[in-house]
């Protein structure tokens, strides 16, 4: 890979308040445009890895660089810039229940202070991209898990982030829907967005055959290009 690393971890350790180890001396580079799966058992450190990247948590030791900036040292304004450039998708979607699909996506632009006109232009395009234009007036409760996740993805990419983080995005949807959702991620990745995805979904990891970082007790035990969910020698 000749491209510069967009994400760089240098000897990163995260120990939580109750002495639980999240990450244990992890060093790795992720390059622009990569699609990386984080795999491993529950509690292996996948979620910690993601949380550290958009600074929902700070490392106990070590350095994390996103786009050449040590993100532990960011001031509030820079942190907001970082988060504008990182989209996040969660297993439980985290949509606003009292807003329609359209409004949920528009909200992410509204709170960044975009003009109404820009919002009206952009939201339909994103709805189309995640295949939800026909359901835009529905509230989350009226949507299936897969549909809600599409909206959540739409919200995560509305501000064109350079990096998209996903924590078990197919964890709450059925297998065939999971495949459809992965197609959306692939498309997003194809236009150059770096994707880092924590998952338990063996089928998806094996099918996409992307880079796989396997964590065990907070340590990287495998980092394999075109890897499978479980290591085969």
């Amino acid at each position: 890979m000749n491209q510069p690393a967009i994400v760089r971890l240098e000897n990163v350790t995260k120990v939580y308040g109750n002495k639980t180890i999240g990450l244990d001396h992890v060093s790795t580079n992720i390059h622009k445009g990569e699609f990386v799966f984080l795999v491993g058992a529950s509690g292996a450190g996948k979620s910690t890895f993601l949380k550290l990247l958009f600074r929902e948590a700070k490392p106990t030791s070590g350095k994390i660089y996103v786009g050449n900036k040590n993100i532990s040292l960011l001031k509030t304004k820079e942190l907001n810039m970082l988060r504008k450039n990182i989209g996040v998708v969660f297993q439980d979607f985290r949509l606003l229940e009292d807003r329609t699909a359209y409004e949920n996506i528009a909200y992410a632009m509204e709170v960044l202070g975009y003009l109404k006109k820009d919002i009206r232009d952009r939201v339909p395009k994103i709805l189309k991209k995640v295949g939800m234009q026909h359901r835009q007036e529905h509230y989350p409760q009226q949507l299936s898990g897969g549909e809600q996740q599409r909206i959540a993805i739409g919200r995560a990419i509305i501000n064109s982030p350079k990096i998209l983080l996903a924590d078990e995005p197919s964890g709450n949807v059925d297998p065939s829907t999971a495949v459809e959702i992965m197609d959306i991620f692939k498309e997003i990745n194809n236009v150059g967005t770096t994707i880092i995805m924590a998952t338990h979904d063996r089928f998806i990891v094996d099918q996409l055959a992307k880079r796989v970082i396997e964590l065990k007790k907070g340590q990287v035990v495998r980092d394999q290009e075109g890897g499978r969910y479980t290591y085969e020698s």
């Binding site: 907001n80 810039m81 985290r94 606003l96 909200y107 992410a108 709170v111 960044l112 202070g113 919200r155």
Partner: peptide
């Protein structure tokens, strides 16, 4: 929940 979303997208 709104506040959480605002934080995630980097609202000032």
């Amino acid at each position: 929940k709104e506040i959480q979303v605002m934080k995630y997208v980097g609202s000032s």
